[in-house]
Each structure stands twice: as structure tokens, then as C-alpha cells.
Design a binder for these strands. Structure first.
Lengths: 202, 202
DNA sequence: GCTATTTGTTAGACGCAGTCCAAATATCAC
DNA sequence: GTGATATTTGGACTGCGTCTAACAAATAGC
């Protein structure tokens, strides 16, 4: 309802010219109430994505630690699985409308906290899964890296996160014949899972 | 000088309690002058990184298009090469001090524009290099992706960008025995170059 | 049903980043 | 030194986000 009011107004008059007061008035509440529901004006963009990140955190929390399995492949599969819930009709509104409404700077500024959370979830998951694998040495952070000792979880996590962002952008840009997000995520993360698996076994 | 003033004050009283007025006064100029040099308060964090991105854009602009060469490997090499300019003593100040000064939210909010620029440079470079390769079909954005037709430049660009971010974080976290950034970047992007090369040849 | 407590909304004050503009000052070329 | 140009300045302003006390609505207990 607040989100709907915001989206209507953004389309009518652009993001920058829409104030929080406008949104609150359109929704029939006070401005202070807006801030009870959203931490910032730009948070209205991210409801679906934040929900998906919650779902991902839940999914990771429920996967048992599997000694010997490839954590990056497991993480990739979880990503593809979450992506399955985003059919063609469920593109986050802002991804298809941001050109029309302006506000790309704000969108960008607010995206990083989501990306950072996402990468953090991936990293911690990969680390946790990887901790059960007896073949991995402790990470030595005080020394310059050699290829064999670079902490794979962080590089893998950030790369996967980047690939998923690329997939989401392709999906959003694809127009009405886009199908679901899953195929895009699968295609984008596929090469990475293989690469880090090959790298981690050295 | 404005940047130095800002960093002193951030250390003395934290990012949030340091206003632009404080910074300007410390530097002996007016507040309006601060905004002649920086678009936003948080831009003081990013001078070195912005310079590095400029250098990367220059490097990409000077590399000739090479038909048949692997653009991702070339891009990776360019990244490693730029990273060579960041010796142990040249860690961007904010990467080592952000815990001490607060302001992590602002740092994050301002990071995305840099990351987005970075990924865009990579993507356009890879596309431009790849355009000379007769073996690549035109990208069909209206159809759902299959592995063979997924637009590799974007996925590769975003993944590489992510990997570099991971490398930079490792580097910053590594403490005083860190050495230069180059080794970290090399280790992080290595698996990716191989992955997308293998994926692109299918 | 009545009272007390808890929860949610509101109006308004405030600080501050960022925008904008006209006036003041500094710099440059001749 | 003069005139043109460039830069800085002070100040007004908007809007986001924070905070608080007052008020309203919902809930719990008797």
C-alpha cells in the first residue's frame, strides 16, 4: 500500500520529484508512519529482493553441512532454486521501470547494502560447508596469497553474487518474452561453480 | 587537503559526527567550495579508487581489439596490471579505517556507483573485444537464455568485478604483512578467466 | 464493562547533506 | 592598472532521516 502509492507517484512524476510526504499522503498515513515501515525512501524498491534474501538465508540455514561436497555447487544450486520462484510475471518493478522514473543514483546507492548482504550470506555459507572438509587448510590471512591458499569462499561468494546480478539485469532487460529468472541464473553461475571447484581442488 | 582534513576529523570524531562544515573549516575553505570538489561527502573516500578506475578506462581504451584473443583473459590481465600499482603502502585509507570511523553505511551506499562503473567498463571492453571474434553469434535478448547464447560479457564482467572486490577486501584485511594488491587480484580472477573461456568456446 | 497497559500513529522540531544563486573576491591577459 | 574571466563565498532553501511527546487504538486483566 505504501509501496503501491510510491510506485504510482514515481510513474506520475518521477522519483526525485516524489517526496516521502507525497507517498504518505497518497497512502493516507503520516510521513512518520512511512518511516515506521521503511528505513529509507529507497527501501520501497527492494521489498521483493529483501524477501528473496531472507528466503536465501533460510535456505542456507536449513541445508545440512555436508563434508566432502562442493559448497560452491551447493550454493549455486540454492541460488538457482530460489530463482525458480521468480517467474516471468514477478520481475521486481523497479528493474523494469528505473529508466522511466529516474532515481537511478538512489537505486544504486541502496543496492549495495543488498549486494553486500547477499555476498556475505554466500561467503558464510561456503565457509561453513567448507569447514567440514578435512582437506582444506586454515586460512592464513597475514601472508600474501598464493593461488593455492587464497580464501576461496570470499572470491567465490563475490563472483557468484556478481553473476547473479548480471543474470537479473539480463532477465529484466529481456522484455516480455523473458521466461523465468532461473534459466538466467543457471547460465550465469554455471561456469563459476565449475571454475572454483577446479581451483579448490589444487 | 580537503580529503586530509576529512580523514583527520573522521578519526577524531567519527564519520557521522563530522559535518561538511567541519571539514571545510578545517581545510580553510567554505562549505560550498567542498561541493565544488566533491559531489558528496562520501566522495572523499573514493579518490584513489576513482583514479584507478580512470586508469583502467584508459588502459582499456588503449588496448587494440584483438580478433581471436580471449577478451576475458585480456581484461583479467589488465586488472592484474592496474593492481600492481597498489603496493603495500597504498591501501585506500578508508578500507583500513572504516571500522574505526563508523560510516560503513555511507561507504556502502557510495560504493555501488564505483562498482557499477567498474563492471560497465569490463562489460563494454569484453564486448568490444568480442565483437571482432567471428565465432560469436549476435546476442538475442528477447529469448530466455540457453548456456550457449547467454551474453558472456555481462556475466563475466560482473563476476570479475566481484572477484576484484573480494581481493581488495582480503588485501585490506591482511594487516601489515599484506604485500601488494596484485597477488590477491591474480589469485581471485584466475579461476574466472578459465571458466568463461571454457564456457564461451562451447 | 472498566481500567491499566501496550502498541501504533501523529505532528512538529531539528540536523544535515546537497542544490542553487547572486555577490564578493581572486586570477589572468593585455 | 584595467577589464574580463574564474573561483569562492554566504546564505536561502528543500527534503531526507531522526527524534520526541502527545494522542489514539488495541489488548490484557480483573
Amino acid at each position: 500500500m505504501l509501496q503501491e502509492a510510491a510506485f504510482e507517484l514515481f510513474l506520475e512524476q518521477g522519483y526525485d520529484r516524489t517526496t516521502v510526504d507525497h507517498i504518505a499522503t497518497r497512502a493516507g498515513v503520516s510521513r512518520a508512519t512511512f518511516f515506521n515501515y521503511f528505513g529509507a525512501k529507497s527501501d520501497v524498491f527492494w521489498v521483493d529482493v529483501d524477501d528473496a534474501l531472507d528466503a536465501l538465508a533460510d535456505a542456507f540455514g536449513q541445508l545440512p553441512a555436508s563434508a566432502g561436497s562442493d559448497p560452491i555447487a551447493i550454493a549455486s544450486n540454492a541460488l538457482v532454486s530460489i530463482a525458480a520462484e521468480f517467474g516471468a510475471a514477478r520481475v521486481p518493478w523497479v528493474l523494469t521501470q528505473y529508466d522511466a522514473i529516474g532515481g537511478a543514483g538512489e537505486l544504486q546507492a541502496s543496492a549495495m547494502s543488498r549486494l553486500s548482504r547477499f555476498a556475505g550470506l554466500l561467503e558464510r555459507f561456503i565457509e561453513r560447508q567448507g569447514d567440514r572438509s578435512a582437506s582444506r587448510p586454515p586460512v592464513d590471512r597475514a601472508a600474501p596469497p598464493h593461488s593455492a591458499s587464497f580464501p576461496i569462499p570470499r572470491a567465490a561468494a563475490y563472483s557468484l553474487a556478481g553473476a547473479v546480478v548480471a543474470a537479473a539485469r539480463e532477465w529484466a532487460d529481456a522484455g516480455t518474452g523473458r521466461g523465468g529468472l532461473q534459466q538466467y541464473v543457471h547460465a550465469a553461475v554455471g561456469p563459476l561453480a565449475a571454475a572454483f571447484a577446479a581451483s579448490g581442488s589444487r
